[in-house]
Design a protein around this nucleic acid. Structure first.
Lengths: 337, 337
DNA sequence: TTGAAAGCGCTAACAG
DNA sequence: CTGTTAGCGCTTTCAA
């Protein structure tokens, strides 16, 4: 901001060579005389030269950044309150930094915002997109595809399309919860599902219900939550009123499970004595409640890293077939069930 | 990615005008014949033209992105687990999107990472930096200043330097907690502080202790936590063992307050009957515990937005004097105290 | 192995 | 009001 930054030209002049040569040593291209190389390095040192990324991008057509877009209906603001997104971010950042790539954070919660995201990518401001989308009707994946923007999704798209994604076997996760509850003797089990227009929620729910059926429980009372603590309380209240004899609950994420536990406590139920509670995700709240929450682990950070990996790969060699990576859930037994 | 994207040139050819004219209508510069304007717009439509941001940045020297750097010692991974950072992100993103600016997320948890951040900014990859730094000994602010990178801090710098920042009156916040505890009749109060090498922690702690002294309690037992739930449990255990007669605790953030509540419960203490608990921040966990947590509100989102505002302003008119914006805390009384 | 020269796509004087 | 002309700083053929 003070004085014009030194350019390749400046370094070249100081070193007494051509721009091209400086460029070569900066980029570590082979075939540069070791002696000249030293001279150039000194000149770089002397001038305090730093390559201008923008100029470089203009010719290489690569920016070294990718868009991390959170696409959901939820009011933009509180989406970051959910530990889930924090974990996604952590996984993405951790992986990308190994490759000197940086994520640009974008929210695609409105149609205008989605258009902006597509424009941003089309303008070449980022090399590709990592899309964390919840709503199964989200139009963004398709629009990105249309614009032929390299993209990888977290969770399979709502409607089948040729795009890479990472996901986990949510059905299996739901089943894990059911198996555990039944195995530990629960007979009056209810469930708090996530929003049913979210594929992951539906899968967890279906997996849970099907497994319960296999165990001889064809009907499981359920209430739909919104993945927030508040919605968890509402759902739990409704369930406990309608089914006062319940002895087990499976909540589709830890936030709701935690809320359910609080709610059950206020109704005087002991956990796990009177009621067993199983959550989903194994995120921070699972360790912030008493007893500690038994939950189905979703390896969010690993999945996010895999997503980033997939994107970088497709950037490396374009035109490849889409790929998918599916993770397996794991039951983490703690105190609540 | 399929075929070469249309350029200004292409549009110009189709519209039968010069590049400059197209550029003018794209950028909404005045002084363009309405008729020509229409022609150009049609041509843009027809060609599906999107301006190339990188090329534009090269000449304007503005990228339309800023770096949001989380600078701390904490293991990069779990920093995003803290609701605090989620709130900062939310505030920043919400504000920036109004100005069509996008944040690039960066972690500066090691010296190498810090160097990378400085390079990134020096390379002109972003127009400025929003720095959320906790550690008071963080060298990054100074290095950014040295590189004359426009930057705004969340929290005042560890050592005085000419840089803009937003902050809140943490001392006043601590005092608010003390006042409330004393006012409601607590006489054996203890406190769980945050890491004492974090300015904000120290301020909260000092403010709390000074206020207690003013109320006639010159000594307040305290244990140092690390702003995590786990550390909160450890601290609470220590305090309850050493001071079994305690009847009030002030924790330096909600995460630790929540953990303290859980810990107290396990020791059979009723809240707020036996022990009153006051937290700090008013973030999500404050509503995820029973009873609801009484806490000192830190308007993180507003502060983050103000930080972004300050940065955009200084980008607008460079060379201004640094500015600071200090927010006031507010006591939110709920069930725990 | 090195240099010269041609752009990448855009904006911004400067003429006209 | 519009077109012409320089570049922004870098990479990359193509010759030498």
């Amino acid at each position: 901001m003070t004085k014009a930054a030194p350019t390749l030209e400046d370094v070249a002049r100081v070193a007494g060579v051509s721009r091209a040569t400086v460029s070569r040593v900066v980029n570590g291209t082979r075939n540069v005389d070791p002696e000249l190389q030293a001279t150039v390095r000194n000149a770089i040192e002397e001038t305090g030269y730093t390559p201008n990324r923008v100029a470089r991008s203009l010719v290489t057509r690569r920016t070294g950044t990718v868009a991390l877009v959170i696409s959901g209906a939820g009011g933009g603001s509180d989406v970051f309150t959910d530990p889930f997104f924090g974990r996604v971010t952590a996984g993405v950042v951790d992986f990308l930094r190994l490759h000197a790539v940086h994520p640009v954070l974008m929210l695609a919660d409105t149609d205008a915002a989605r258009t902006e995201v597509v424009e941003f990518l089309r303008q070449g401001s980022a090399d590709g997109a990592l899309l964390v989308t919840t709503h199964s009707a989200d139009p963004l994946p398709a629009r990105l595809l249309d614009a032929s923007v390299p993209a990888v999704l977290y969770a399979r798209p709502g409607t089948p399309m040729p795009v890479s994604y990472v996901d986990m076997d949510h059905r299996a996760g739901g089943a894990l919860a059911a198996d555990h509850l039944v195995r530990t003797g629960r007979r009056n089990v209810v469930t708090i599902s996530g929003p049913l227009d979210v594929l992951a929620s539906r899968d967890r729910h279906d997996g849970f219900r099907d497994a319960m059926a296999r165990h001889g429980f064809p009907y499981v009372p359920s209430a739909e939550g919104g993945f927030t603590g508040e919605s968890g309380v509402v759902a739990m209240q409704q369930l406990i009123i309608e089914h006062p004899d319940l002895d087990g609950v499976f909540a589709a994420n830890d936030l709701m499970a935690q809320a359910a536990m609080n709610c059950l406590h206020s109704y005087g139920r002991e956990i796990p004595g009177d009621v067993a509670v199983v959550g989903f995700d194994d995120s921070a709240p699972a360790l912030a409640c008493r007893p500690l929450l038994t939950t189905v682990r979703q390896p969010v950070e690993d999945m996010a890293a895999a997503m980033a990996d997939l994107l970088l790969e497709s950037l490396e060699k374009p035109g490849q077939r889409p790929r998918s990576v599916i993770f397996e859930p794991e039951l983490v037994v703690r105190g609540s069930a």
